[in-house]
Write a protein that binds this DNA or RNA. Structure first.
Length: 749
RNA sequence: UGGGGUAUGGCCAAGCGGUAAGGCACUAGUUUUUGGUACUGGUAUUCAGGGGUUCGAAUCCCUUUACCCCAUCCA
């Protein structure tokens, strides 16, 4: 139960530990312009889950900055989703629109700072001026406007003096930024539209990039968690808060990968298409990946939560297999719901040697579900079984009823087929059978061996019900649109037959129809007169039962050959350096190449060489470790000098310390800037090479790990690293690894 | 093409220089009056490819490749 933490929780823990925040505050910030889907559920479990885990809190905030697309019906759906999943928000639901006045004031402040201006270019011009990903953009001439002008214009925008699109407010950042998002992003636009909450009070509305960070700040959010596609927006997020001088504690944005599931679509646009195009019956169509859809289908909140928990949180775009979701719901329902019998495709059986009626007591739960409850099953000479449970010409390995193979009617008797009656088309329409009176379940003395027990219903008392059998909405793993719709995603069975107790006793709303799957009494269409059940998910089927299993070829794909791209040629200058390094200094090709191509590195290297003539070892540490430090910083920002590196390598050359220790010292040095010799002395890092000291430690480790020794001797050579590591750890890293390695392998023989 | 990300089994995903976790899927067996469940076992000589550093690399360095995001007055 030591499940490792995801990267977000790790960040939160660090921030709490370092005192950056006293309390973690997150938020779930959907735009109320569509129904929430399971991707939102992931976000909800992350945001509310983290708040819960660290005793913080999470706000539910409607990001309602675009009056033309949003609607209050969506906020209800969003609230419902959060509640259904079992989370609570503090006091009230927050709305970005509540902050419009504050947001406006911040905008004015920015203008006064000369950091925002009113632009009056047309929409098209703005696009042109923005440039492209490879070409810089250029600032509009309106960027020259004075603070006074901007203030005045912005005020008049607010007062509704202009038409939509006449002006916008933009941040004054950098029109040539490599990050397109930073090319003077729009902050406010004019919209003479009715806002579902703010009414007609505003004629200007803030853009996402301006409103979101400030709303987070206003609410005291500590960790603003969003999906990957906002990575580029993080720069604006920081810019706005920094520019306004909104410091400690202020929120920081962190991104995770959104959820993708195969055989379905998740984008709001595509979902909307399906709903509006009438492809599905509505936002709560049970085939949709919407929360409303899952809810209507019969999924439990627990199953969704467990699913979200199971898939993890990371930054790699991924596509989760629906099988994982199906597992979550089966796993949740299996120990909870009553088992009942329902025949989906009825086939009449007449038991010729049975007379009268009886009632059979049958438990609602199987032996492995520790729950109580039972019902009476009527039994008579006329019953129905499922068409699939009889086969006149069975394939090998068929367990159910055949002309030659008897079968048990679950909880009741064993029957044997006597006659198969067909219609004019050759379809089996009825079976005449005989039952074995001494085979009654629980007191079977017949000695007949059957391979299966099947579900059945008594003909006269069975209730006719409608069963809606759902399958995946799309036939493709990564569907593009309606052309990929699975034509068989909904099969309505009007006259399925169910045992009477289900309708009369109503022991639950969710059931397992034995040997079929899990079903849910449809919360909308179910009535006592016309009961309707939705199939939630089928039972898992072992491969032997699957008819024509869509056998996926295991793998055996030829290994992909990866083409190497071309490396940029060296400049003349670099080439000279490269030749010198390989020929004179005898550096290996790769090291020389790295050094020669990087001016910062080669300069640093040459300087270190001045102090110590150990070209190879210095080259190695410079290309590997110094290079890492230099990735983030300039040479001048480094805490250590080339001279100190030389000093460090001197110790390695003198075998005073191992290269492993050298790395450790290097880390220390790059943090503190202390002299390497001092670090070595202060920490007593001088290496131990004396076998007399090392041997006892090795023996101890060997004595402590007898099973690993055995495994090693059995041929698991990888364990050598384990032992060396243990010994090195015991010497606090001071053991001479080369010596330790030799001694360990000798001792283990 | 500039910038920002990401690559670990069929699908997710841990791992942060010292024995490649776990779940789903798959598979074999045991139990079973659900071809369900439960239980037990099997499934990566290898971490996108190639080099380098190191006694030791999925982890550090160099390099190549593939995929995703950014040029809405959407969020």
């Amino acid at each position: 139960m030591n499940k490792s933490k995801d990267f977000l929780r790790r960040i939160v823990e660090e921030d709490l530990k370092s005192g950056k925040y006293q309390e973690v505050v997150t938020r779930f910030p959907p735009e109320p312009n569509g129904f929430p889907h399971i991707g939102h559920a992931k976000s909800i479990t992350i945001n509310f889950g983290i708040a819960k885990d660290y005793q913080g809190h999470c706000n539910l905030r409607m990001d309602d900055t675009n009056p033309t697309t949003e609607d209050t019906k969506y906020v209800e759906a969003l609230k419902d989703a959060v509640q259904w999943l079992g989370f609570e928000w503090d006091e009230q639901v927050h709305f970005t629109s509540d902050y419009f006045p504050k947001l406006h004031d911040y905008a004015v402040e920015l203008i006064k700072m000369g950091k925002a201006y009113v632009d009056s270019l047309t929409e098209e011009e703005i696009r042109e001026y923005r440039g492209t990903v490879t070409e810089a953009g250029k600032r509009s001439k309106y960027g020259q406007r004075t603070v006074q002008e901007n203030l005045d214009l912005f005020e008049r925008m607010k007062n509704g003096e202009f038409k939509d699109g006449e002006h916008v407010l933009r941040a004054k950042i950098d029109m040539s930024s490599a990050n397109m998002k930073m090319r003077d992003p729009l902050l406010y636009r004019i919209r003479h539209a009715h806002h579902f909450r703010a009414g007609d009070a505003w004629s200007i509305y803030p853009m996402y990039d301006f409103a979101h960070c400030l709303s987070d700040y206003i609410e005291g959010v500590s960790h603003s968690i969003c999906t990957l596609e906002f990575e580029n927006n993080r720069d604006i997020y920081d810019w706005v808060l920094d520019t306004l001088g909104l410091v400690t504690p202020r929120p920081y944005q962190h991104e995770f990968a959104r959820l993708g599931i195969n055989y379905t679509v998740m984008s709001k646009r595509k979902l909307l298409e399906l709903v509006e195009g009438g492809v599905v019956s509505g936002w709560d169509d049970p085939r949709l990946p919407t929360i409303a859809g899952y809810k209507r289908r019969g999924y439990t909140p627990e199953s969704i939560l467990n699913f979200c928990d199971g898939i993890g949180i990371a930054k790699a775009n991924s596509m989760v297999d629906v099988a994982q979701l199906e597992f979550a719901i089966r796993d949740d329902l299996n120990p909870k719901v009553p088992r009942v019998m329902c025949v989906l495709n009825p086939l009449k059986i007449t038991i010729e040697n049975y007379e009268g009626v009886e009632e059979i007591d049958a438990p609602y739960y199987p032996h492995d579900v520790p729950k109580e409850g039972s019902r009476k099953l009527p039994f008579s000479k006329e019953i129905y079984i499922d068409q699939n449970d009889f086969d006149e010409n069975p394939p090998k390995g068929y367990f159910r009823l055949t002309p030659l193979q008897p079968v048990r009617l679950k909880y009741a008797y064993i029957i044997t087929c006597k006659e198969v009656i067909k219609d004019t088309n050759g379809n089996v329409v009825e079976i005449k059978a005989e039952y074995h009176a001494d085979s009654k379940s629980g007191s079977d003395t017949s000695g007949i061996k059957v391979k299966s027990a099947i579900q059945w219903v008594e003909a006269t008392q069975a209730k006719s019900v409608e069963v809606r059998v759902y399958d995946r909405l799309f036939k493709n793993e990564a569907p593009q649109g309606v052309e990929d719709i699975n034509p068989n995603s909904l099969k309505i069975i009007k006259n399925a037959l169910i045992e009477p107790a289900v309708i009369t006793q109503r022991p639950d709303v969710r059931f397992q129809f034995e040997r079929e799957g899990y079903f849910y009494a449809d919360p909308v269409d179910y009535t006592d007169e016309n009961p309707v059940f939705n199939k939630i998910v089928g039972l898992k089927e072992s491969s032997s039962k699957k008819k024509k299993a869509p056998q996926k070829t295991p793998k055996s794909e030829p290994k992909k050959v990866q083409i190497d791209g071309e490396v940029v040629a060296m400049s003349e200058e670099e080439q000279v350096l490269f030749d010198k390094y390989t020929n004179e200094l005898k550096l290996n090709f790769e090291v020389a190449n790295t050094l020669a191509r990087d001016k910062k590195l080669s300069d640093f290297y040459e300087e270190a060489l001045l102090t110590l003539n150990s070209p190879v070892n210095i080259a190695n540490i410079v290309t590997n470790d110094v290079a890492r430090a230099l990735k983030q910083k300039e040479t001048s920002e480094l805490k250590f000098s080339a001279k100190q590196i030389a000093e460090l390598i001197k110790m390695v050359d003198d075998e005073l310390i191992s290269s492993k220790i050298a790395k450790q010292v290097f880390e220390e040095m790059s943090k503190s800037g202390e002299n390497p010799t001092q670090i070595v002395e202060a920490k007593g890092l001088v290496q131990i090479s004396d076998p007399d000291v090392i041997l006892p430690i090795i023996d101890e480790i060997i004595a402590k790990n007898p099973d690993n020794v055995e495994k090693f001797r059995a041929g698991n050579r990888k364990l050598l690293g384990f032992f060396v590591g243990q010994v090195l750890k015991a010497t606090k890293g001071k053991g001479n690894p080369k010596v330790v390695n030799e001694l360990v392998s000798r001792e283990l023989q």
